[in-house]
Design a protein around this nucleic acid. Structure first.
Lengths: 128, 128
DNA sequence: GCTTAACTTTAACTTAACTTTAACTTTGGA
DNA sequence: TCCAAAGTTAAAGTTAAGTTAAAGTTAAGC
């Protein structure tokens, strides 16, 4: 069982963000790495995966607090029936939101494709 | 030919943003409505469409300046060949970016779907 | 053991994207 | 014609998401 771990700067350069950003996410409660005897942060593969998730979320315009909410929910292991049902509802809600975003993304793509076509047509005419 | 127009507050409430935001976008050069004799802003259907585009872009984490760049490019009518070619390149670049975003969106959706499945399974077990 | 690179915290600073406020003007209805 | 509602600008204030700086601590290679 290999237990790969990372220092803050390793992880930062791999994910192409600054160490300060990683510390900032920790301050905001999005991540919570172990520490060495000397108090330096050590990141596990799971921590790395979580950071990747954070960055992915950010690229979609989710705010850190939204991401925080999603992570908290993802990592909960609800045992009680009522809580389980609430979690289920939450995931369904988020899935719907994502579906809507996908539709909008398709609209933007359509706009851009049309633009591109227009440019191509005009270039063609220039060549005649 | 009906030439529907809007006041700032009409448009704001329709798009569910504040009038100040609309003014702010104008200040940033994203939109440029006509004015009445008395200097009040009047928005055309095209202005409304553009605002929608701005909001759509924002929902995808594009910054206002990126959106501004895209809009400026969309509204340019380049006649020169070289410029046309640049515009074409630009649109292709943006389309690639969008494709990548779509992939990431699919990853997030997958994560969420898995979560949802887990909750369903656990609920099932509880009922046995 | 020493040096130096990498780490630590705390606090101030920065930027984008708005929002709020203040002081004033225009518009639409009784 | 007058008044309230809606609009105007300019400037200051706010919030999120970092970045930078200062001052000190730990770890790694010689």
């Amino acid at each position: 069982m290999k237990k790969k771990i990372y220092s803050i700067s390793e992880l930062a350069s791999e994910l192409e963000i600054s160490p300060s950003s990683i510390r900032f996410y920790e301050e905001k409660g999005l991540i919570d790495p172990e520490r060495t005897k000397g108090n330096q942060r050590i990141y596990s593969i799971r921590d790395r995966a979580r950071l990747k998730l954070i960055l992915r979320g950010k690229r979609f315009g989710f705010s850190l607090s939204e991401i925080s909410e999603m992570i908290g929910f993802a990592n909960s292991e609800p045992e009680e029936k009522h809580q389980l049902e609430r979690s289920l509802e939450y995931s369904e809600k988020k899935l719907k939101e994502l579906a809507q975003r996908r539709e909008e993304l398709e609209l933007i793509e359509k706009d851009l494709l049309e633009m591109k076509e227009k440019f191509i047509q005009r270039l063609k005419k220039l060549k005649e």
